[in-house]
Design a protein around this nucleic acid. Structure first.
Lengths: 342, 342
DNA sequence: CTGAAAGCGCTAACAC
DNA sequence: GTGTTAGCGCTTTCAG
């Protein structure tokens, strides 16, 4: 089938097999500035395939002084929000021949910083940090410092979340989206809202709550009469909803800070004999693809996550000067869980 | 805050700052066989933190001859099936200080092979290939060859799917799970089944169909009166279901080859005025976490995907001789979409 | 226990 | 055009 020496073929092996110098082999295989004459080039290429040669990327990296890996930091890859972003990133990375190193921080800001240092060690060309920033100045300062170090080692950083760091960011307009949702729900006739949020530390959740409050004010009607705080997950949504159902005031619509929480909330409602939509309206944020088939269908504020992932990757690769912020609007999508109130 | 030379600090810099040799610095920082006396060691470590030193992983890799990256190949990271597996893998990788390079093949077996070659170029320590194998001997042979090359370059391979390759594999017992599901559904009183599958090329889907047929036979009642083939995705489920609804024979239960397809199927049913569970039973496979809150709740064959991801990673790290196959059973979970027939 | 020096596989001057 | 050679940043003999 092919030669097998027990160790991967090196460029040296290829050069010898083709009867040329190391340099020529190198030039032939990845076309440097200098060109290699056709016959030689073919001989080298032929030897390379015959030996199943694959360039040692690590060696190339140290010789060239830069790698072709980019890092992707997410809170939790099992969360469809991040999985969709990751799909966009990885798709775009592939188009550019880049490898993506994935790190899931388990929602810990400390780990986020640690992983960023790890990516610096890997001399990643760039890193995309996805997920809500944390409302904690000390933490933010430490991340900022690590970002600075990452840059110092030649890497680029792009954030997907809030533009609170001096770095390119794809900023999701949570506040505006929430505002629009509030206006829309008020217009549908809802007045007494319950709001399920993640702990204040997660800025995304806070932005959504605040935007919602602003929206209600603008609409001149309706108020949030209950707020429940829990994890930014399905279980968190379940718990928060349970709290409101069991000890909160009467509400006619519940808004969760994201779709995943909304789904948990709907389950809690059912477990308490409350039918979503019919007896209590529900809305969320994100428009997670796998949840578009819920029944009753969930009203939500859609963010194009796949596209967001692609955008982040594109910004990362773009060598523009100065830090840019690319705003992504949320689109309110009214579905069955928020029927017009008679 | 700290020195800044405009380029990342090298071990050489650290050594000089600490007034020791390169070798000593190296030994102090990652404790080689030889130990360094405490005072020196501390001086080096202090210098390292002061300079914000991060070892150049690429350089270490070429010097040591091995990297600390492992590759993860999935069909589509946006699919919750793979996202959950990825979460398990990444969690376990982190525990071992390994970096994971993620590649999404977009369900293309060709790309799977290409990416595997890429991971060989990266000299990944190992690779986990997740996702159904393809029913195509030529393709399988090419993958096998590439696996062999990957091994030849010192890497380990673990598959998550069918054990058709000579490599460690976490094998999902699709057939047995499907059999059990069939028996259970027959016992619930269902007789005329529709089955939604992915194209035959995807072995997982085929195994589930065949197992289901076997189960019906064993149960001595019921038959699959309609089979519809479509993509192994939500949209595929929608399309396949539509086909059966519009031109298929009457069925009393529809089984989809996975939960994601089942969800699409339920949407198709609703769009045709058919209420899932009440008018037509539905079941799937996998027990995707985000879909556990569907209403009516979906009957499914549960596979512990997070755990499967962890297992694959553990096998990859385990230096046992010979190739091992770890079987993972599916557990039938009857929920609301398959009520007992009166 | 510490230092000097020879690689690891590759790229990029620098010569011819 | 092609070959020689000096690094890239690190590990690991081999001396002392």
């Amino acid at each position: 089938m092919s030669e097998s020496t027990g160790r991967p073929a090196t460029l040296q092996d290829v050069a010898e097999a083709a009867g040329v110098s190391l340099a020529t082999a190198s030039r032939a295989i990845n076309g440097s500035a200098r060109r290699v004459k056709e016959p030689l080039r073919l001989r080298v290429l032929e030897a390379a395939t015959r030996l199943n040669y694959q360039p040692n990327l690590q060696a190339q990296a140290v010789a060239r002084g830069r790698t072709s890996v980019i890092g992707l930091l997410v809170h939790d890859i099992a969360d469809p929000y991040f999985a969709e972003i990751a799909a966009g990133v990885s798709e775009e990375a592939e188009r550019h021949g880049l490898l993506v190193t994935l790190a899931s921080t388990q929602r810990s800001p400390e780990r986020e910083i640690l992983h960023l240092a790890g990516l610096r060690a890997q001399r990643a060309q760039g890193v995309i940090i996805a997920g809500s920033r944390f409302d904690d100045d000390a933490l933010a300062a430490r991340l900022a410092a690590e970002i600075e170090l990452f840059r110092g080692s030649g890497g680029k950083v792009t954030l997907i979340s809030q533009d609170i760091h001096d770095a390119d960011t794809v900023r999701l307009e949570n506040r505006a989206g929430a505002r629009a949702l509030a206006v829309r729900l008020a217009r549908l006739g809802y007045r007494r809202f319950g709001f399920l949020t993640a702990p204040r530390a997660l800025i995304t959740s806070t932005e959504r709550l605040e935007g919602f409050l602003e929206g209600l004010e603008a609409a001149g009607g309706g108020e949030v009469v209950a707020t429940a705080v829990a994890e930014f997950t399905r279980d968190g949504g379940y718990d928060a909803m349970t709290e409101i159902l069991e000890s909160g005031p009467e509400v006619d619509c519940v808004v969760a800070a994201n779709d995943v929480m909304a789904v948990g909330a709907m389950s809690a409602m059912r477990d308490h004999g409350v039918r979503p939509a019919d007896q209590l309206a529900v809305a969320g944020f994100d428009d997670i693809a796998t949840l578009r088939d819920l029944s009753p269908a969930l009203t939500t504020v859609r963010f194009p996550l796949l596209e967001v992932g692609r955008m982040a990757m594109t910004m990362l690769l773009d060598e523009a000067e100065g830090t840019r912020v690319r705003r992504v609007r949320g689109e309110v999508i009214v579905r069955e869980t928020t029927p017009a109130r008679s």
